[in-house]
């Protein structure tokens, strides 16, 4: 596997004194879906937030090690965190549309990037919504408040909003955990389609979901990366005892 998008070398994260991530080293392939699994509190979400430096927002966080994206260390002093986030989008666990219209939600990203032309914005809004497979449902009410959408629609809207800034990598933090099964399957289909164009990293506590959607799976436990490999391999013959225990539901 030559197409490695992200190289993580000995990445550790401290909340004050507490070491929350312990020397993580892994390689995340391009244009694949990588699932991060593990019991809650294992550090998988924290690790995800390291990839677009969302942890910068939390005071007292210290990060050591390297996070190389296409060979560039994003924690380098000379790297601009705002530009990083434009290239590495994120979809959150709880859908969080802005209290604005649907259109404004999608246009938010392009607008802050300086796109003012109305036709250009219209186009971006339409393509993003189409890519997120939600265009047909809401094309007639783009000016309605985004808060009026159902939970599943909101989450796909958030994905569309992320796509509108044309990122390269998309991070998803348990994007379907608060949704009903039908919405969940729509999100999963969407993930499947999106990997043609994007590198996707998805955190999930639902192992079926990881098995269904991902190409690679990494298992985290107590802040450590226990095992990473092809999803098939992880779920059928894990190398580590802890992984096996988790997958077979013996804890977590």
């Amino acid at each position: 596997m030559k197409d490695i998008k992200i190289h993580v070398n000995d990445l550790s994260l401290y909340y004050g004194e507490k070491k929350a991530l312990k020397e993580i080293s892994m390689q995340i392939p391009a244009n694949k879906v990588t699932a991060l699994i593990g019991p809650s509190g294992c550090g998988k979400s924290t690790f995800l937030r390291c990839i677009n430096r969302m942890n910068d927002l939390i005071p007292d966080v210290k990060i050591t090690g390297e996070m190389l994206v296409e060979g560039v260390d994003i924690y380098d002093k000379n790297v601009d965190v705002v530009n990083i986030r434009k290239k590495i989008g994120m979809v959150f666990q709880k859908s969080n549309p802005f209290p604005k219209s649907i259109y404004e939600n999608i246009a938010y990203g392009p607008k802050i990037n300086g796109i003012k032309n109305k036709t250009e914005l219209d186009e971006i809004v339409e393509t993003s919504l189409r890519k997120a497979a939600i265009w047909d449902e809401i094309k007639d009410r783009l000016d309605d408040s985004a808060l009026g959408l159902s939970g599943g629609q909101q989450q796909r809207l958030c994905i569309a909003r992320t796509l509108a800034v044309s990122p390269d990598i998309i991070l998803m933090d348990e994007p379907a955990s608060a949704l009903d099964p039908i919405s969940t399957s729509k999100i999963e289909e969407l993930v499947h389609e999106l990997k043609e164009q994007y590198t996707i990293i998805i955190v999930t506590h639902n192992m079926q979901q990881a098995a269904r959607t991902s190409d690679y799976t990494a298992f985290f436990y107590l802040g450590e990366l226990i095992e990473m490999g092809k999803t098939n391999a992880i779920f059928t013959k894990p190398e580590q005892k802890q992984t096996e225990d988790y997958i077979t539901g013996r804890f977590g």
């Binding site: 244009n31 296409e70 560039v72 000379n78 530009n83 290239k87």
Partner: peptide, 22 residues
């Protein structure tokens, strides 16, 4: 999946360089 970077090089030191925003 054949080329090394399917979507052109997105992450370069230049494009990610720290910007001064007035």
């Amino acid at each position: 999946m054949n080329s090394e970077f399917p979507n052109k090089q997105n992450f370069t030191k230049e494009s990610l360089k720290k910007q001064f925003r007035l």
